[in-house]
Design a binder for these strands. Structure first.
Lengths: 239, 239
DNA sequence: CGAGCAGTTGAAAGAGCTCAAAACTAGTGG
DNA sequence: CCACTAGTTTTGAGCTCTTTCAACTGCTCG
């Protein structure tokens, strides 16, 4: 069930057989969530963390008057709230955007990992630091990229992250969310997302339709986004 | 030298005498940096991490055409690049904004901590997760807060973080940076920062002058910012 | 005393927002 | 099989916040 999670770990680290066994044994159960269901509530003591097995989820923060900002999208294989292990409670919600299968890991098992498996601990620590790196790239997008650049950048990021777990086929990947949810990722209004999508489409870069993203020209797309995948910390490719 | 760092750890965790000794022993040397000097370069293998002893520093990312975004401000006592221990290299630069004293911690000593001190390891892991929480709040600011709200929010955040290490006196704290650097934090232009500062001043909320912030009305300031310090994960106050 | 940087001001332009309505799409029930 | 409803996408038009560009002030420092 957590093959994609292991796949993602292996894309960045060497994992021993023993460590793989520990990771597998850390899962207590699998749960299914419907779209819009809360996977991890904010400001509530938590006793488990969650790995996304399939589907799409996000971390979201709200202002009192209802304005909502998504701070990260979670793809299959991601530990969505590993940070709740040390933080005890979250400053944001984790929400299912589509139907999701989720693997549940009780915190006591993570505690045991930190007590007995320092190398694996460092790997998971790395994992939360990678989330922070993604946050920083989003800060850069929101602060300095134009609407067109931000949207292009998001499509690039998802391309790379989903490709890592085999979910890109033929330069197409699933992204079954609404334009309004895209707007919540980008700090924009749904109307402006719509117009910006039209521009990306008319320039032949990328198409977002029917829950799918079709990347027509990744080179030009990442150029307009000024996308540099270094912040995703992939192992350097062998040649 | 790292009293403020320990003070900050104690504000959120219980630290044993032994752990305190380990933390103190992890420092190899103190170095001084001038304003604008790079403390940790991006995309370069790193062998040490840095704790800010005094001064002000930041994490910054650039786009190819020179647009710059600061992703976090670092206050005295902060581990500025603890994440480089697991990431090995950084996706951003760490830069001194004012003259800074910095304590240097070689990564081998951090490795030893992860091998022998799991509780302290979790505390430091918490520390990087706290940085991520701050990143998320900045994502919310950049995505959904207005210029006025964002600026107010930044002043609130710094108020709480600096108060933690005794740097707020009489509702005033040092912030010796330019309006242009403030703009780089907020994803705005210097001109607009200037006008927004005037607005905050004229409303009697806060004044930014001569390298100092004078908070005239924290209650109304945090109200206009929709500031909720929960994301800074302070220990709940005893009553 | 002049150079240079930070801060301030004004006017015009523009990116993105708001509001509102229309066009689609898909699911529901008679 | 066809209304009917609800949610999503699309379009139009006007408006606002923020940017851009340029000039000017004031301060510090060599």
């Amino acid at each position: 069930m957590i093959e994609r999670h292991l796949q993602k770990l292996r894309a960045r680290h060497d994992i021993s057989d023993e460590e793989e066994a520990v990771v597998r044994a850390s899962v207590s159960e699998i749960r299914r969530y419907r779209p819009d269901e809360t996977i991890a509530p904010s400001h509530t003591p938590l006793g488990v963390s969650n790995i996304l097995v399939s589907g799409l989820a996000c971390r979201a923060k709200d202002l009192a008057d209802g304005r909502r900002q998504i701070t990260e999208l979670q793809t299959p294989g991601d530990y969505m709230d590993l940070h709740s292990f040390t933080l005890k409670q979250l400053d944001h919600e984790v929400i299912a955007l589509t139907a999701c299968d989720v693997a549940i890991i009780p915190h006591p098992r993570l505690l045991e990992i930190t007590e007995r498996h320092p190398h694996l601990t460092r790997i998971y620590w790395f994992g939360t630091n990678l989330d922070a790196a993604i946050h920083r790239e989003w800060v850069l997008s929101l602060g300095r990229r134009s609407a067109l650049e931000s949207l292009a950048h998001l499509f690039c990021e998802l391309y790379v992250r989903l490709d890592l777990v085999g979910l890109v086929l033929d330069s197409r990947y699933p992204l079954d969310i609404t334009q309004a949810q895209l707007a919540e990722c980008l700090g924009m209004t749904p109307v402006h997302v719509n117009r910006t999508l039209q521009q990306l489409r008319s320039e032949g870069l990328v198409e977002f339709r029917d829950g799918w993203v079709a990347v027509h020209n990744f080179a030009r797309l990442s150029e307009t986004a000024q996308f540099d995948p270094a912040y995703l910390y992939l192992k350097p490719r062998r040649r």
